[in-house]
């Protein structure tokens, strides 16, 4: 079971609500993927053209993970988190502090600051970060419930470009490690789980596929396979062959 804060989850696939062409697909995707946690964003209502509240499309048993996207510093992230909690979204909060529009890289320093404040205030904090061991330790000390290092830039589908650092983080972390952002293929999600990630968060790859429910199912199977592979402790890669059949008793003439 994946334990985050005081909740336990059987699914290790976290999903997102961004970029769906048809919001009715969100529910179908949740059903097929088994994902139990989903991200949402807060925005000002567009008063000329009010949008549909995405909460209307998420079944009640799903754990909401509001993100602080749009926040450019810790204070803004804290404010968004408080609004989300007051609005009845629960205690989970994904801290996302970004002011780099090109690569959407998170600001680790401001994220640590926001984590300290929000964890103390009773939130279950899931900070989205640039993979860095020192940051992860500081977040742990600050009361983060998990760390969410990126695999590659948000929405890039570029996979685990930060793999060697992710491996170091996984080896040293005392709290769950969830690889967030950049995973574009089920094989990449499986790879993240094989190296010992506790979970992955996939939004773009699922939401922008032509069949989000089917894509969600594919990612769900990959996450399970990767997790089981990790638990089975597969052997390391070798430069040389290693015979699978006995090397004695050949039927030589």
């Amino acid at each position: 079971m994946l334990k985050i804060g005081d909740k336990e989850f059987s699914s290790r696939l976290l999903s997102g609500t961004g970029k769906f062409r048809d919001k009715n697909d969100i529910k179908k995707m949740l059903e097929k993927s088994g994902s139990q946690i989903i991200t949402i964003a807060l925005r000002r209502v567009n008063l000329e053209n009010p949008q549909d509240n995405v909460l209307n499309y998420i079944p009640k048993h799903i754990t909401l993970l509001p993100n602080t996207s749009g926040a450019r510093n810790a204070d803004e992230a804290v404010r968004i988190a408080n609004i989300a909690r007051e609005a009845g979204c629960g205690d989970f909060i994904k801290i996302e502090v970004i002011h780099d529009a090109k690569y959407l890289m998170p600001d680790n320093e401001e994220t640590i600051k926001a984590t300290k404040i929000l964890a103390k205030d009773g939130f279950t904090v899931l900070p989205y970060i640039m993979p860095d061991i020192v940051t992860c330790k500081k977040l742990e000390d600050a009361g983060a419930s998990v760390v969410m290092p990126l695999g590659s830039p948000i929405g890039s589908n570029a996979g685990l470009q930060t793999k060697s650092i992710l491996e170091m983080i996984i080896e040293n972390s005392n709290i769950p490690v969830i690889v967030d952002a950049g995973i574009g293929l089920p094989s990449q999600a499986a790879n993240a789980m094989e190296i010992g990630a506790d979970a992955v968060l996939i939004n773009t790859a699922i939401a922008t596929s032509s069949n989000p429910a089917l894509a969600g199912e594919a990612f769900s199977l990959a996450v399970r396979a990767g997790r089981i592979a990790y638990l089975s402790k597969l052997q390391k890669q070798s430069q040389y062959a290693n015979a699978s059949s006995p090397l004695t008793g050949f039927l030589n003439l």
């Binding site: 609500t17 209502v45 007051e86």
Partner: peptide, 30 residues
């Protein structure tokens, strides 16, 4: 003015000149 006004308090909350009002909703996001 940066204070959340709960649903059941909206009827009684009278706005004043200069108030900063934010109306927020939940949208899709990752």
């Amino acid at each position: 003015n940066l204070n959340i006004i709960q649903k059941d308090k909206r009827e009684d909350y009278i706005l004043n000149d200069g108030d900063k009002v934010e109306i927020i909703t939940f949208l899709g996001g990752g």
